[in-house]
Design a protein around this nucleic acid. Structure first.
Lengths: 204, 204
DNA sequence: CAGTATTGGATAGCGTCACTATCTTGTCAA
DNA sequence: TTGACAAGATAGTGACGCTATCCAATACTG
């Protein structure tokens, strides 16, 4: 299809499609001449992915490109590849303190291995520090309650991951992380409302 | 304390503190003269909250102000007040479609009440649509697994909410939502890594 | 085959945002 | 009384994510 049809099918403005092409988020079409190129369903899908990463997952254009690059060119080492992609996902790590006391305590309380090289450790530290600074610190009780529920989530995710195709596993892991976090957040908010509603016996 | 001490204690640059004052995020100090004002621990705490909302929860300055306003001046109707604050939290709802088929199906599958007026319904719809568009659609299996785990989270949260002091409840609900979502996201990522690590038998 | 439309490619501009810097005027403290 | 600091106002900055315009080279259309 021509670029105008791609624009029509996705709803993404022409100028923006060209911008994504320039930035390397969208692969160029098959050139059929000096001023013409063919686009196909892969381009439609890619635009969907780009918008999902930018609009829903909240990534910047640059980080979205990094994530797409990782998915397109996975390394042989699965765990490292996924780790690399996850570092592009928000929240982003600023200065690396090399010391994450809150995160360390939490992780060890849950019986997990504490490895300060994981980007998520720094993320957890900052999230915990922020909650503390704002006056709603993490308690041991809550840590235990959250830990159990989150283990459930994680075990389902990992259990459903393809172990045969590494490229698929990377895509699943990265998109699963980036795109299901908003799903989980929304579901939690709804569950809160439901719980409050039931706690109040259905009255406003 | 003087403004310079506030700057030193929080690490927030002077120009930025003035900016927050201008924008109404930070309450003015007690004026002791035409060019002098006193700041106290409440100001230090507020700056911590502002940075937590902006840097960790990812709010814009304007939305952070809206959240702070709600916490400071809660209405009598608890549920409505919390709802108002939650709409300021990302991800933000764009055009209201009034029809949320994916979210409706999911919510009813979990046995909750579907009310399209909740902002979180639109958020869930967009998150589900994005996952679908990106090629990792929500399955019934996953919905059930997530639903159970998330109910656990929500029940703990609501169970620990103060039912006596409305102002406290609002603060707890809003900050709990805004600041614990990053905590949960980080914990899930770590749980993923832990699960993969154990699935691979400890080898890299 | 003339004429209009469309494309790819390049470049420049725009609006928002979150600061940041400067300047003025007043004031406190030594 | 002098020099550092403060408040308040205003303008500027750099990044970001588009968006608009131009141009030359085709491609369809009648």
């Amino acid at each position: 299809m021509r670029i105008s049809e791609l624009v029509d099918r996705t709803g993404v403005p022409l100028a923006t499609v060209k911008y994504y092409l320039r930035e390397g988020l969208l692969m160029p079409g098959q050139a059929t001449g000096a001023t013409q190129a063919d686009y196909d369903d892969a381009h439609v899908e890619r635009l969907g992915l780009i918008r999902a990463l930018i609009d829903v997952a909240g990534l910047s254009v640059k980080r979205a490109k990094a994530v797409i690059d990782v998915i397109e060119h996975p390394e042989s080492d699965l765990v490292r590849t996924i780790g690399r992609a996850l570092e592009e996902l928000p929240p982003y790590g600023g200065s690396d303190a090399a010391e994450y006391p809150r995160a360390k305590r939490a992780i060890e309380a849950l019986g997990q291995v504490y490895d300060p090289d994981y980007a998520a450790v720094a993320q957890l530290e900052r999230a915990l520090a922020a909650a503390e600074a704002a006056g709603v610190p993490m308690t041991d009780d809550r840590l235990r309650a959250y830990g159990g529920a989150i283990m459930e989530l994680a075990e389902f995710d990992i259990g459903n991951m393809s172990t045969t195709d590494p490229a698929d596993a990377v895509k699943y892991a990265v998109l699963g992380t980036a795109l299901y976090e908003p799903v989980i957040a929304a579901m939690r908010r709804l569950a809160h409302q439901d719980a409050v509603y039931r706690a109040l016996g259905g009255s406003s």
